[in-house]
Design a protein around this nucleic acid. Structure first.
Lengths: 335, 335
DNA sequence: CTGAAAGCGCTTACAG
DNA sequence: CTGAAAGCGCTTACAG
């Protein structure tokens, strides 16, 4: 590897001068600068990020914490889209992306230690169990953190507007004539709570009764559990005319249960998904769903994190709320 | 940040001794070692990876190059699964994962420079345009490279067994009585070539004619182009009884075209996908498809890359071929 | 078993 | 405008 030293020898100037020329300081003569730059190019010089980091304490590296119970953060449709745009935005701003984990060689270390050790300047937390003590420790540390779809006190966050988007969905379903609207929601989380609030408050607002037997829980992105929940709803004496589901993938389970019960969508019963992944509009029946704006969510998260890294004195901590879009389709019929 | 220096002062020993104690060298007395370790813990010492990298020239960091034309490597179902297992395997071996890109601050640099600069020890190339000169430069450089589903001369690679898996699929379709088997394949690539070879050679092996009008091209994971191609096939005078598609997502386009033509799957015509993403088994009609073993592909790629990094003298360069699994289902009917 | 010293590649006051 | 010097935090021959 050619170093600044090699350039200095070849050019007959000091390493200080080479460094200054390379970094665009003004107190270097135009002539010297040109010579240094030319020589650097000839020699194929590449600066050493570690030496620089050691000296300047800056790494321009953002960490991603992206693990969930099923260890499938990256294959999660929603989060992989968010990560994709987070990555683009970060790279466009000259930052690198890396993953945070608990290993250091053969040892297990904490997530915070991993960040410190590697000089990670800020972390985006998504798709993790927020009550994990190590995640808490990280969120409370001096490392800037931005979370997605969850609020850590004292940290920036970007939230998909679940409460209002859900409300809009319920209002739409109501406008189609439905009065018996069930909601199979995911397991407890900030997102789930927001959606339940949106669901419950809108029913009340519309003068509809909130019926406990119409609110069931299943796992996110797991059609098998949704199928079971749907079967329960179908067996009710006074069964719903529309079922709202945790997400588009789990909607497959509902479709299956409904078909096996000999019912047709939307003639006999309506359903709606959530997420708006492309496939939901391809399957038959085409799903009414809420498209979350993953591109914006990821980009806003990256911008916010970088801002907070570069403005440690007055970081932005107010939640950034990103509106989704209602995609109406044939799976919700007129009653 | 507490450094080795702080520990040495607190313990009254030299930094050399602290370093040795911390790194488990044997030439340190048991007593000193214990004192150092205890003090390090008390002080909350975290080593500095950059200082170490500067000295040892090792970063334990693997790069991922994961961009394609549509800039959606991460949201690509197949590749996001591969990445997920690559990441798990790498981390279990004490390596970090980061993404390679072309930026350095405000400057644009080459992919190779990005690797050199950041001390990346090896790169996994997947889901990129292999003819990109910068990718070529990287593959030819002294940075160890492992590619997925593509062969760079002189580099390790992991290949999904497209040729044989495709052959198996064709044989299965044949065994169901089909003799007019069309293949809508993706755009030209190593993977596409392998699948076409598997398709053509198996037809010949089975004594079937290879008909040009049964071989059409569409984009991968793009149902709109597949729909168009399927429509063409349906308009043929002597139309196929089974259509093989580029992947499960694009199969949605075929399903739509077939339904719009008033035909039923599998009664009137059969179809098969490729990839075996979970959703393909959920939609109706349930897709016959080939599940690629993404978990194994990712893990083998990580193992291979790490092996080649740690054995620069005799790296493993023979392709590792990972067999897929035929998933038969109702979308292919008996003729 | 312990420690002084050199050095990895860079940046940055500071003196001239 | 230029350069000598110190130092970021660590590791590692080498001498004792």
């Amino acid at each position: 590897m050619v170093s600044i030293r090699d350039i200095s020898i070849k050019c007959g100037v000091s390493v200080s001068t080479v460094s200054k020329a390379l970094n665009g300081y003004k107190d270097v003569s135009e002539e010297t600068r040109r010579l240094v730059l030319k020589t650097a190019k000839e020699l194929g010089y590449v600066p050493n990020a570690h030496a620089r980091a050691l000296k300047t304490n800056r790494t321009f590296t953002l960490g991603i914490l992206f693990v969930d119970d099923q260890n499938n953060g990256l294959t999660h449709l929603y989060f992989s889209h968010v990560l994709n745009s987070f990555k683009s935005e970060a790279e466009e701003n000259g930052y690198n992306i890396t993953f945070i984990h608990k290993r250091w060689g053969k040892q297990i270390i904490t997530l915070l230690q991993n960040c410190k050790f590697r000089g990670i300047e800020g972390v985006c937390i998504a798709c993790v169990e927020p009550n994990d003590p190590e995640v808490q420790e990280l969120a409370k540390s001096d490392v800037p953190v931005v979370s997605i779809d969850y609020i850590f006190p004292g940290c920036g966050c970007v939230l998909s507007d679940n409460r209002n988007d859900m409300a809009e969905l319920v209002r739409y379903v109501y406008s189609m004539g439905h009065r018996k609207i069930a909601f199979i929601h995911g397991t407890d989380s900030y997102v789930t709570q927001q959606r339940i609030e949106g669901y419950v408050s809108t029913l009340r607002e519309l003068g509809l009764e909130v019926r406990q037997e119409y609110m069931l829980e299943s796992l996110y992105t797991n059609p098998y559990t949704t199928k079971k929940a749907t079967e329960k709803l179908l067996q009710l004496e006074d069964r719903p005319t529309c079922i709202l589901l945790p997400d588009d993938v789990s909607a497959f389970g509902a479709i299956e249960a409904i078909q096996e019960a000999g019912l047709k969508i939307p003639d006999d019963i309506s359903i709606a998904g959530y997420d708006g992944v492309i496939y939901s509009r391809l399957i038959s029946p085409r799903l009414t769903t809420v498209r979350q704006d993953t591109d914006k969510i990821g980009r806003e998260a990256a911008k916010l994190l970088i801002y907070n890294i570069e403005h440690p004195q007055n970081p932005k901590l107010e939640p950034i709320i990103v509106k989704g879009e209602l995609l109406t389709n044939q799976s919700v019929g007129l009653v």
